[in-house]
């Protein structure tokens, strides 16, 4: 995480460290491009990757930075400057998309540490399929199955928070695979399956980006 990501200013040629997602070149003030490997946390002003983050905090960071880099602010500037602004705001919006929902944020952290989400346990899968069948046959049971799945979703999400809390506090919590991260990956697989069940039964999307994977 702490590795420097060198960026070169297109105007004055000075080299800057891009790892903290700087907006402008410190020596000449020109807008900088975004390093391809910059962390979405850095873009949203969070110093170190962590799971526990408030929506308000992320939202405010996103708005503040959007105001500075939005291409509308640079419409009267040179083409290169406009390109940088577009790149900056696109990276910012991508970071928001990756981190705003707790599920997506945990997924990012898990993948970042090269932990592959395990398959859902055979038993759990069978159980889910049975519930789906039951809901399809018995309309009366449907509502309670959806409610039950939602409650389990919330419980697993809370467990995810408890599992990752110690990593948030460690300096290098998310740099390498660890037992809590493997547990988190298993929870994510279950969360996704529950969300899919709820969505299929017409209960709405518990994960906004459910289809994007």
């Amino acid at each position: 995480m702490s590795a420097t990501l060198p960026l070169r200013c297109r105007v004055c040629d000075a080299e800057t460290d891009g790892s903290a997602a700087p907006i402008a070149c410190p020596s000449c003030g020109a807008l900088l491009p975004v390093h391809a490997r910059v962390s979405p946390f850095a873009l949203l002003g969070v110093a170190r990757p962590r799971f526990a983050l408030g929506r308000d905090e992320l939202e405010r960071a996103w708005l503040t930075r959007s105001r500075r880099v939005h291409p509308d602010r640079f419409a009267a500037k040179s083409e290169a400057e406009r390109r940088c602004a577009a790149e900056q705001v696109a990276a910012l919006n991508d970071a928001k998309r990756a981190l705003f929902e707790p599920y997506d944020r945990a997924l990012w952290l898990v993948q970042q540490a090269s932990v592959t989400p395990p398959q859902l346990a055979q038993q759990a899968l069978v159980e889910l399929m049975e519930q789906r069948e039951r809901a399809e046959e018995d309309a009366a049971a449907r509502a309670s199955i959806v409610d039950d799945a939602r409650a389990r979703f919330r419980a697993r999400l809370e467990e995810l928070g408890r599992t990752l809390a110690p990593l948030d506090e460690a300096d290098d919590g998310y740099t390498a695979p660890s037992p809590p991260l493997r547990r988190a990956a298993a929870l994510l697989a279950e969360l996704k399956t529950l969300a899919r069940l709820v969505d299929d039964l017409g209960g709405g999307k518990l994960i906004g980006t459910l289809d994007a994977r």
Binding site: V11, C12, A24, C25, C28, G29, A30, K77, S78, E81
Partner: peptide
């Protein structure tokens, strides 16, 4: 133009 942009940033 780019240098002016930078100077006024």
């Amino acid at each position: 133009v780019e240098a002016l942009d930078a100077a006024t940033q």
